[in-house]
Write a protein that binds this DNA or RNA. Structure first.
Lengths: 193, 193
DNA sequence: CGATATAGTTTCGACCCGATATCATTGTGG
DNA sequence: CCACAATGATATCGGGTCGAAACTATATCG
């Protein structure tokens, strides 16, 4: 083997995360990014803990610190009193504009489009395979999810038993499943608009 | 922008590091890997701190813990009493065979060779550019380093003022410089074989 | 209704991390 | 040759991460 690509990925990720150092830790940045990208079914501490490959306890602490800083806020879920909906505040969105990952994206954006496409596909493929090995969810978009079917002009999700709006489709979902329908349906999802 | 590639890289790195969980932390694994790959000029706590984009104090602690576990050992540098040479012990090499990053490399090894080559080049390019932005060293191989010149059958390094053996050339060097000769020469390098 | 599962929090101990201080050794300039 | 700066390394402190375990409240299933 000439070069250890896994090593390069880990090193690059570390360099990218420890950038401008705008006051947040790597875990806090990851949480802030996650809640800004996740759809309404996935904006919970539990979903973040799965995404971050950590425990609910650790995720709870990270969320707590961001709420204390005013970058996130908690909302109660009307249909399930156990669950907590997390939202990114205006201050949180402002903070995201100084994300240290911006530098890496800038560098990557200068690559040829064809190279970037190969890179994206390879990373996506590796992430999916590794997530399967680690028993971690894949996190994809509802538009390509096996749970979601378009019927009579509306998109219906068989997993959360709800009609998806534009916002739901745009965000990343924890219940994403590409092809198979193995996952059991979830009950008590947040109310449909 | 369709997908945030930087996000994918950070996520993939996190998944890869938190794998088998063979008892070491992410920082400890990174240190162990580094000292196994670095050449004799770079097997020091300071070099690792630069590689890991952290402080010497933090790096010192990580090294200390690995020495306490018997995975690393300290050797004094004959030509500079301030410096400490770090070596990976037999137990350390045995531990490396259970590196959680192995899973990611296995997954990546199943990609088509052409894809893997594009991936490697793109990552290498991005790492170099980002390292420049972050004022971090690049860490490359002596065979492609601007400091090293072959003359009369021997490879001489103008940075460390020493003749390089096979082992030195094989390892990764902190003083790596691809094209320009901006770096000042280092004195008091470990004695030549 | 009772047993079990799920969402979330808290606490604990170990480690990471940056900042700072300290110490010994080495290099430099006068 | 000697003060002074630079370098390599370690130690300490406070805040954060992390996994494990215990715990509360709610939801689901039989």
């Amino acid at each position: 083997m000439t070069v250890d690509i896994a090593n390069m990925i880990v090193h690059l990720a570390r360099l990218a995360q420890n950038g401008g150092n705008t006051g947040l830790t790597a875990a806090q940045w990851t949480a802030l990014r996650f809640f800004a990208r996740a759809n309404r079914f996935s904006r919970t501490p539990s979903a973040f803990s799965e995404f971050h490959a950590t425990t609910r306890g650790t995720a709870s602490q990270t969320v707590k610190s961001l709420v204390a800083m005013g970058l996130l806020c908690r909302q109660s879920n009307a249909s399930d009193a156990r669950s907590t909906l997390i939202e990114v505040t205006a201050a949180g969105h402002a903070m995201l504009r100084e994300d240290p990952l911006r530098d890496l994206n800038t560098v990557l954006s200068r690559l040829p489009p064809q190279t970037r496409r190969v890179l994206e596909d390879a990373l996506h493929h590796a992430t999916a395979e590794l997530a399967a090995l680690r028993d971690a969810p894949t996190f994809g978009n509802c538009t390509s999810c096996a749970h979601c079917k378009t019927r009579s002009g509306e998109v219906y999700c068989h997993c959360t038993h709800s009609i998806l709006g534009q916002d739901d489709m745009a965000g990343v979902c924890i219940d994403f499943d590409l092809a198979k329908q193995a996952e059991p349906p979830r009950l008590n999802s947040p109310a449909v608009d």
